[in-house]
Design a protein around this nucleic acid. Structure first.
Length: 498
RNA sequence: GGUAACGUGGCCGAGUGGCUAGGCUCAGCUCUGCAAAAGCUGCUACAGCGGUUCGAAUCCGCUCGUUACCUCCA
């Protein structure tokens, strides 16, 4: 195999070689959605990014346990006393049971992820199903002296924690700076310090989602669920923790603190990976700005910012064409370019299916230089992935490989000049990286391929008879369905229109 | 205010101290009944100003500009 996988670790601010704690097993936890609204382009980016990481780790032979949670409780609008649970708020708004809201949006999330060809995680725990674990963890933190109870609510004592361990190591925050710059929010009297965050909140009489605990009938704080669930399924220390860059502080910082405060395990995860945001006109796409585009709107084209509909694979390709740690700017132009690029890659897949290495070796000298060049191109593809999952680089390398594949197909390069080994390497690399690792798939004809081949035989006949009216008619009709005919020296074939 | 990041050709987007990123767009050529597809060629950039260096878009400093986090957010 090529060089090893390197990942940028937010914790150390460096690219590090990936070395699992207990190879061949890999534990990976990624923060999933809070299911109180429709998934948007931002959710897609996070999901696709970690989907590729998951796929690539499996491709390399690791036995991965991928855990991605569903936040269905305890995610407050703010930390104030009357802070309202997002789910509950939405439920009130729509006159539904909170669990109806949760189920509704969870289902949509799953459907959209399927469309994007995002593999399901191995475990998808819900916060509401892990109250016992969370209560237990709070008790541990209390016992260790890093939390305090006030009126039935329990808060994490950041300053007490900071004395023994360092708070802010992930995000690079310094506690004094935080104290000087914290905005004053309403209803924070209970907390000893504005930096403290809720582990358990006592429910107000009108609060629907509530569970019993030693302190009060209430509900857990948002940061706690990830700590409790990752620990339950992956252990106190695991390999990879992922999520959006916007979760780095305070969410992930708090997770690290909770983990340390409860079971004295440093950092919770060895590698902390963060994907960057999607922007619109250079501005972050987010709820608060109201400039987000839902996936369903993207797929239907039903949004004022959209000039047309875009297919799920176009979106996936669009995301993959940028490195996950840079911001990615949304625009119709960029998506249309992505559409064409994606189609080109898919056509390459089809070409490979039809290419055959000659069984009877021809009397042609193998071209050592050509063989070497092709082998280097395949290595480039992996080099990109190994370099902090640089899918943009990998895709560029795949396009380079594709040029050669097309030349082989058109007979511009004689296939007999390749060794069998090189040929297999080229074919396998292209197919496996596109389909298995990048997770792209054909979206259009599917099982209509045989039909199309039949049409092509008619086309060929008409052409031989020089019945150009018929030829043009067939071409026009196929074009209506997004299929173009390729007349090549070596034969006739079809391809997706780009 | 604090802390980070970024500023690449018409657009999107990689990148390493010296060796072609790639995609899209545009123009031309080859092929072709005409096309298309594919291949080839061209348009050749690194915010500005200094510095380090034989050599910097790539390292350092300053300036300008943009963004993110510091409150919920993927």
């Amino acid at each position: 195999m090529q060089q090893k996988l390197n990942l940028y670790n937010t914790l150390t601010r460096k690219k590090e070689e990936f070395e699992p704690l207990h190879a061949p097993f890999v534990g990976m936890y990624v923060c999933g959605p809070t299911v109180y609204g429709e998934p948007h382009l931002g959710h897609a980016r996070s999901a696709v990014t970690f989907d590729v990481l998951y796929r690539y780790l499996k491709y390399q032979g690791y036995k991965v346990r991928y855990v991605r949670n569903i936040t269905d409780v305890g995610h407050l609008e703010n930390d104030a006393d009357e802070g309202e649970d997002k789910i509950q708020k939405k439920a009130k708004l729509e006159h539904l049971e909170p669990m109806e809201v949760v189920n509704h949006y969870t289902n949509i999330y799953h459907q959209e992820m399927d469309k994007l060809n995002v593999l399901q995680p191995d475990i998808e725990p819900r916060a509401s199903g892990h109250i016992i674990e969370q209560v237990q963890m709070i008790q541990e933190i209390l016992d260790n002296g890093f939390a305090y109870e006030v009126n039935g609510s329990v808060y994490f004592d950041v300053q007490a924690y900071d004395k023994e361990h360092k708070y802010g190591k992930l995000s690079g925050r310094v506690i004094d700076d935080l104290l000087n710059n914290t905005r004053t929010l309403e209803g924070q009297e209970e907390k000893r310090s504005p930096l403290d965050f809720a582990l358990w909140k006592k429910a107000s009489p009108t609060h629907i989602m509530r569970w019993p605990s030693p302190w009060s009938d209430g509900f857990p704080g948002w940061h706690l669920e990830c700590s409790a669930m990752s620990r339950k399924y992956l252990g106190t220390t695991f390999d990879i923790h992922g999520g959006g860059l916007d979760l780095m502080f305070p969410h992930h910082e708090c997770e690290i603190a909770q983990s340390q405060a409860s079971c004295n395990h440093t950092d919770a995860a060895k590698y902390w990976i963060h994907n960057n945001m999607i922007t619109v006109n250079g501005q972050k796409m987010g709820k608060s700005l109201g400039n987000f585009i839902n996936l369903s709107e993207l797929f239907s084209g039903n949004h004022e910012m959209l000039e047309q509909a875009y297919t799920p694979m176009t979106i996936r390709f669009f995301i993959l064409q940028a490195h996950y740690r840079s911001t990615l700017d949304f625009s119709n132009e960029a998506l249309q370019a992505a559409r064409k690029g994606y189609t080109k890659l898919m056509n390459g897949l089809r070409v490979l299916k039809k290419l055959r290495f000659p069984e009877e070796p021809e009397a042609v000298e193998p071209d050592a230089k050509l063989n070497e060049e092709l082998q280097k191109l395949t290595q480039d593809c992996f080099r990109g992935l190994n370099d902090d999952l640089n899918t943009a680089k990998t895709i560029a390398s795949l396009f380079n490989l594709l040029k050669k594949i097309n030349s082989l197909y058109l007979g511009q390069i004689n296939i007999a000049q390749l060794s069998r080994g090189t040929y297999d390497l080229v074919r396998d690399t292209y197919q496996e990286l596109v389909l298995d690792v990048l997770g792209l798939k054909e979206e259009r004809v599917g099982d209509m391929e045989e039909m199309l081949d039949l049409v092509l035989t008619f086309y060929k006949e008409a052409k031989e008879q020089k019945a150009y009216d018929k030829v043009d008619a067939i071409r026009a009709e196929l074009k209506r369905h997004g299929i173009v005919i390729k007349d090549m020296k070596t034969g006739i074939d079809w391809a997706y229109e780009e």
